[in-house]
């Protein structure tokens, strides 16, 4: 029982840690247009698990913020909404990457210092 609770706490913390990285991960895969489901599959293949109920609302939000642009493809049997980085989004993505490596470096430094 105690173990379960520990797991629960740990899981929560890991989720929290991951949450901040999701946007960066998603943006990294959107230089080429993708629709929601293809993006999930693609990211899962590369080892980053993301669920549809997180990704779909996120894509919409990023589009609203102007980071992504979208178009509908109605040629196939199923109409699909494709997303890709906008010009503005590309700039944002690069800055996020820089911020990420700064954080990474700093945290790594702190962790290594501990050991």
């Amino acid at each position: 029982m105690e173990n379960n609770i520990d797991d629960l706490v740990l899981n929560g913390l890991i989720q929290e840690l991951r949450r901040g990285t999701i946007i960066l991960a998603v943006l990294s895969q959107l230089k080429q247009p993708q629709y929601g489901y293809s993006l999930i599959v693609l990211m899962n293949e590369k080892g980053f698990d993301i669920e549809a109920n997180t990704l779909y609302p996120l894509l919409r939000r990023l589009e609203k913020q102007g980071i992504l642009e979208s178009f509908w493809d109605t040629d196939g049997t199923k109409p699909r909404k494709y997303y890709r980085l906008s010009e503005y989004g590309e700039g944002v993505y690069l800055k996020l990457c820089a911020a990420w490596s700064d954080i990474n470096r700093a945290v790594k430094h702190l962790i290594d210092e501990e050991e």
Binding site: Y37, V41, R60, K78, P79
Partner: peptide, 15 residues
Amino acid sequence: IGSELKVLIDDMMDG
């Protein structure tokens, strides 16, 4: 959002 979800569910089932 409705049609987007419909296609998503369809895709997920296909997979």
